[in-house]
Design a protein around this nucleic acid. Structure first.
Length: 478
DNA sequence: ATGTGC
């Protein structure tokens, strides 16, 4: 472990006050010895830097998938007081409400046999992928405002899915407080033609099979059985969210002097939660988050359509298990020094993991806690977990979001050949379809930390409990 | 992640 870090539990580490100057609270992170080998000193410094921000409550936290990011580390979680504290785009990330949803089907792996290539090709044709991907869906400026306020509900009202889906989304697919007026014309311009598109990088639409049930009782509650074919959508708010982050970072940077905020790193630009600039960022961020929920709802519907046409199954036989956000800031009530208080929780590459009985989770899941979805990297397992009481106590009800990169995109491109990788995965029975083989190299399994180890740590640390492991059968990527 | 980089 790095010098100056204290071990405070089997998988828990403390960054003491003084690790960097002006820390208000200690840092804490969760990590195994195996993951410690790839821990970046810069990411720990970022975790400590977050602890210098005004109004931070309890600890600056990071999950075991911690790695170096913009300002805050990815895998970072931090809560701020509603009157003394700040809100920061660096604590959310550029891809606002990047998230994951999981949908079950009544099919088994054997039902796909022989038609899997056809299925992948049809899904690839139905869902636009790639950096600049544009949708066939056209939304007017007024409709885009409705998307930003109503999120997944807008999509359902337009015929993409049903009302039952909304009850299976975090925030029911639309967080409150969205302010479309805090979204620039440029952000609208980028977002309008992209609704219903997957994007690029680690985003994917994947066909999976439930390979292993670890917690039978929770699996029953979530409606998952071994051998079942599912599909998973991992994407975010596309160019719209990126532009909202860019616009508000600039605004917040120029307001730092006004609020006499001194930062160890300009990338931590922020404003008081309760200030015009802070409220504007929140309103823009919530708008982008809701756009992302609508985006995943549209993509899910297009995928359901393909499955329905190919296998003659009904739409309501393809049930949404849950949809989680892993890049967002929210106002939530938590225990602070023995009393309930509202705080502004930032989760950046971290997933909400509310435990049994927590408010805001579907009634049907109340007994086991909310579903937590951890996407694997290309060719590796994804996981379904449940939230816990321990997470409520230790991490503001948060857990990891997946595996962090260990190799930069440029290094990955030098070391991996996309076509070879595609052929190798095909031999393992995993069909990959992307616009170009070259984009696959950047997403090769070996350029990411092993997600099973990250998941093992959050399970062992009690931040969430493993319910099931899902293996990829086919994937479409940007 | 991103109309990919000052």
């Amino acid at each position: 472990m790095l010098e100056g870090i204290n071990k405070i539990g089997d998988l828990e580490w403390e960054v003491p006050i003084g690790y960097v100057a002006n820390m208000r609270v200690p840092g804490r992170f969760f990590l195994s010895r195996a993951l410690a080998e790839t821990l970046e000193e810069g990411a720990v410094r970022q975790l400590a830097n977050v602890a210098t921000l005004p109004g931070i409550v309890k600890h600056s936290l990071a999950m075991p998938d911690i790695h170096w990011g913009y300002g805050f580390p990815i895998g970072g979680v931090a809560a701020f007081d509603m009157t003394e504290g700040v809100i920061s785009p660096g604590g959310v990330g550029f891809d606002i409400n990047c998230g994951v949803r999981l949908i079950t089907t009544p099919l088994s792996e054997a039902d796909l046999a022989g038609r899997k290539r056809d299925l992948i090709e049809r899904l690839f044709a139905a869902v636009p992928t790639g950096v600049g991907a544009k949708s066939t869906l056209r939304v007017s400026n007024r409709e885009l405002s409705e998307v930003m306020v109503n999120g997944a509900r807008w999509a359902v009202e337009r015929g993409f899915g049903t009302g039952a889906d909304l009850a299976r989304c975090e925030e029911e697919g639309a967080m409150p407080g969205a302010d479309p007026d805090a979204v620039s014309a440029k952000a609208r311009q980028r977002g309008a033609p992209q609704l219903g598109t997957l994007g690029a990088g680690n985003h994917f639409l994947e066909i999976q099979v439930v390979k292993e049930i670890v917690d039978p009782e929770a699996a029953r509650v979530f409606g998952i059985v071994e051998g079942q074919v599912c599909f998973m959508v991992h994407c975010g708010s596309r160019g719209l969210g990126h532009q909202v982050a860019t616009d508000h970072l600039r605004i917040l940077e120029s307001a730092l002097g006004k609020y006499r905020i001194q930062l160890p790193d300009r990338q931590l630009a922020c404003a008081p939660v309760d200030s015009p600039e802070g409220r504007a960022y929140y309103g823009g961020m919530a708008s982008a988050a809701n756009y992302a929920w609508a985006n995943r709802q549209v993509i899910m519907h297009e995928a359901r359509k393909v499955f329905a046409e190919m296998y003659g199954i009904d739409y309501d036989e393809m049930r949404l298990v849950y949809d989680v956000a892993h890049n967002v800031a929210k106002f939530e009530r938590h225990d602070v020094d023995g009393a309930q208080a509202e705080v502004c929780v930032h989760r950046k590459g971290a997933t909400r993991a509310f435990g049994p009985g927590a408010p805001g989770i579907p009634h049907a899941y109340a007994a086991v806690g909310q579903p937590v979805l951890i996407p694997g990297s290309m060719g590796t397992s994804s996981y379904l977990l449940h939230g816990t009481t321990t997470a409520m106590q230790k991490t503001w009800g948060s857990t990891c979001h997946g595996a962090g990169r260990v190799l930069s995109r440029s290094k990955a491109k030098k070391e991996v050949r996309g076509k070879e990788l595609r052929l190798q995965l095909a031999e393992e029975g995993i069909l990959v379809r992307a616009s170009h083989d070259s984009v696959l190299a950047e997403e090769a399994p070996e350029v990411y930390k092993p997600s099973h180890e990250v998941v093992r740590v959050v399970h062992e640390a009690g931040l969430s409990g493993i319910v099931a492991r899902l293996n990829p059968l086919g994937v479409i990527k940007g």
